[in-house]
C-alpha cells in the first residue's frame, strides 16, 4: 500500500513523473503506443489517429477554457485555419514538419485577434465573441475560394518525408501519436511554469491576479494563442489524415464536441482532457458495437430501431456524468486510483 511520495531533492520534486511506478507505466504506455498499429488493425488504428487529433485539440481548449477560464465556442474554426494552412503549405511545397508548426502559428495569430475582446468581456459574453469568430471564419472558408477552394474544399496531399508518403492510417499514426504525446506533455508542463500558474490565477480571480502583478491582457492573449496553436496543429493533422478540408467539417458542432469533451473529462486537467476526448470519441463507437451485437444475437432490425436510441444513451451518459461527477471523469479516475492505492482500507 502506498502512503505517499518521499522527495529527497528539488529535482525529484520537480519531476513530471515523480515515482518509479509512474515512469514504468509511462514506458509501457509508450511501448504499447509504438506497437499499437501493428496489432490493432486498420479500424483501431483509425480510431487511435482520430483520438490523437481530438486529444491535441481538446488540450488546446482546456488551456483556454479549463485553465484560464476563457470559454471558446470557436475552437473548430481555429482547427479549420490549421487545416487550410496545411493545404496551402503543401501546395507551396512546404514539408509537413514545417507546415504543421506554420498551421499552429497561423491559428495562433488568428486566436490572438479573437482573444483581444477578452480584456473587456468575460464569461458568456466572451463565449459569444468566440461564437462570432466561428461564423466569421466559417464564412471565410466558404468564400475565399482561391485559397480554401470554397464550399467544395481543398484536397490535402499526404505528408511525405524524403519521398516517403505518410499515407494510410498506420503511417499517419506515426505522425499523430508522437505529436499527441509531445503536445500533451507540453500542456502538462505548461502549468508548472509561471505562465501556466498565471493562467490559473486569472481563472480563479482575475482582479486578484492583476493585483499580484499578472498582466491580464498579455496572459489572456497568451492563453488564446497557445490554445489556438494546439487547435491549428490538430487541424493540420486532420488535413493530413482525412486529406480534405471543407468548411462543413469545422462547424459549430465540432466546437461543441470539444467543449463537451473537456467538461465531461474535467476542466483544468490534462488527465481530464485525455479521458474526456477518449470518452467522446469511443463511446459512440462502443454504442454502435452494442447495436451490432444485438443484431448478431438475432435481434433483427436492431440497427434501425436501436440506432436512434444510441444518440439518446450517449446524451444521457454525458448528463449522467455531469450530475453524478461534476468534476468529470478525471475525478472518478483519481478516486478509483486512490481506492486501489489504499486497498484493502477504505478511503
Amino acid at each position: 500500500m502506498r502512503i505517499g511520495d518521499f522527495h529527497a531533492s528539488y529535482r525529484h520534486d520537480e519531476a513530471l513523473f515523480d515515482t518509479r511506478a509512474q515512469r514504468v507505466w509511462l514506458g509501457l504506455l509508450l511501448a504499447a503506443l509504438a506497437a499499437f498499429p501493428f496489432v490493432g488493425g486498420s479500424y483501431l488504428t483509425y480510431l487511435a489517429c482520430l483520438l490523437g487529433i481530438h486529444l491535441i485539440a481538446a488540450a488546446g481548449l482546456n488551456v483556454m477554457t479549463g485553465y484560464t477560464g476563457l470559454i471558446s465556442l470557436g475552437h473548430a474554426a481555429f482547427m479549420g485555419v490549421g487545416c487550410y494552412a496545411v493545404a496551402v503549405a503543401e501546395r507551396a511545397g512546404i514539408p509537413f514538419f514545417l507546415a504543421l508548426p506554420l498551421a499552429g502559428a497561423a491559428s495562433a495569430a488568428i486566436g490572438l485577434v479573437v482573444g483581444i475582446p477578452s480584456l473587456r468581456i468575460k464569461g458568456l459574453y466572451f463565449a459569444v465573441a468566440t461564437l462570432a469568430a466561428q461564423f466569421v471564419l466559417g464564412f471565410v472558408f466558404r468564400e475565399w475560394e482561391s485559397v480554401t477552394g470554397g464550399v467544395r474544399g481543398a484536397n490535402v496531399p499526404a505528408a511525405s518525408l524524403f519521398g516517403f508518403e505518410l499515407a494510410g492510417d498506420r503511417r499517419v499514426y506515426f505522425l499523430i501519436a508522437p505529436l499527441a504525446v509531445l503536445m500533451l506533455l507540453g500542456a502538462r508542463n505548461l502549468f508548472r511554469t509561471r505562465v501556466g500558474r498565471a493562467f490559473i490565477a486569472i481563472r480563479d480571480r482575475d482582479i486578484s491576479a492583476e493585483v499580484l502583478g499578472i498582466s491580464l491582457f498579455r496572459y489572456k492573449l497568451a492563453a488564446f494563442a497557445i490554445g489556438s496553436f494546439y487547435a491549428g496543429v490538430a487541424g493540420g493533422l486532420w488535413g493530413y489524415f482525412f486529406r480534405v478540408a471543407t468548411p462543413e467539417l469545422f462547424g459549430l458542432p465540432l466546437s461543441v464536441f470539444y467543449l463537451a469533451a473537456i467538461i465531461v473529462g474535467g476542466l483544468g486537467s490534462i488527465l481530464g482532457t485525455i479521458l474526456g476526448a477518449t470518452f467522446m470519441t469511443l463511446i459512440p463507437e462502443f454504442l454502435r458495437a452494442l447495436v451490432g451485437w444485438a443484431e448478431a444475437f438475432g435481434l433483427e432490425q436492431a440497427g434501425v430501431y436501436l440506432a436512434p436510441l444510441r444518440q439518446v444513451v450517449f446524451g444521457l451518459l454525458i448528463v449522467g456524468f455531469l450530475v453524478f461527477e461534476p468534476h468529470g471523469l478525471a475525478e472518478m479516475w483519481r478516486r478509483t486510483r486512490r481506492f486501489f492505492h489504499l486497498w484493502p482500507f477504505r478511503t
Binding site: Y43, Y46, R288, V291, A307
Partner: peptide, 21 residues
C-alpha cells in the same frame, strides 16, 4: 451495415471497421 449518423468521422470509422473485418 452500421448507422453513420451522417457524421464523416463515424462513417469513415465504419468503413475502416467493415473493410478490416
Amino acid at each position: 451495415a452500421e448507422d453513420s449518423s451522417y457524421k464523416v468521422d463515424q462513417s469513415v470509422a465504419i468503413f475502416k471497421k467493415i473493410v478490416a473485418q
